[in-house]
Design a protein around this nucleic acid. Structure first.
Length: 161
DNA sequence: GCCAACGTTGGC
DNA sequence: GCCAACGTTGGC
């Protein structure tokens, strides 16, 4: 399982954009706009086409990893930063030096049963996951290959994807 | 709806 | 460059 690819986790509020919404998007693909945190942006800049993403529902009942997506386009400028009508408009960003980037991700699968945050916390091998760190709010974060394997194979019982 | 944890802003 | 004030995130 050494594909040279990297693994990530991305959070979305299902009331705003759920994994079902992703599955029903044109080409089952969406651009991940609106990220306005430098650390999260830098992780997106480190993404490559083919990287895998755990799709996480935050502010949900229960909060949970619900499935898998993949990166289909590497980082490029998020146009909403220049759109005055956008909630994500950033007046301090200029087109000659865009401050905020986004990537495109495509749906791959929804787990038969979601993996609630509580379940992840019970797994000793996941104790160092960024998601489980106290106070961690990063909406885009790295996942190690070992963590990916535990989450996808052991807990979700899915085929590696 | 509460609030702890964290990031950002801006006065000094 | 410090730090108080403020805004946001996200579990509970």
């Amino acid at each position: 399982m050494t594909h040279g690819r990297n693994y990530w986790l991305m959070k979305s509020e299902p009331r705003v954009f759920s994994i079902e919404d992703l599955a029903q998007s044109p080409k089952q693909t969406t651009c991940w706009d609106g990220v306005r945190n430098y650390q999260a942006r830098n992780f997106m800049r480190a993404m490559a086409v083919g990287d895998r993403v755990l799709f996480y529902h935050s502010n949900a009942e229960p909060p949970a990893v619900v499935g898998i997506a993949e990166v289909v386009r590497a980082a490029y400028p998020d146009e909403t930063q220049f759109d005055k009508t956008s909630h994500h408009y950033d007046p301090a960003s200029v087109p000659s030096a865009p401050r905020w980037d986004m990537v495109d991700i495509r749906y791959r699968q929804t787990f038969k049963t979601c993996l609630p945050l509580d379940r992840l916390k019970q797994e000793p091998k996941l104790k160092d996951m960024v998601l489980l760190r106290k106070g961690s709010r990063l909406s885009v974060q790295p996942v190690t290959e070992a963590e990916w394997t535990v989450v996808v194979l052991k807990l979700a019982g899915a085929k590696i994807s």
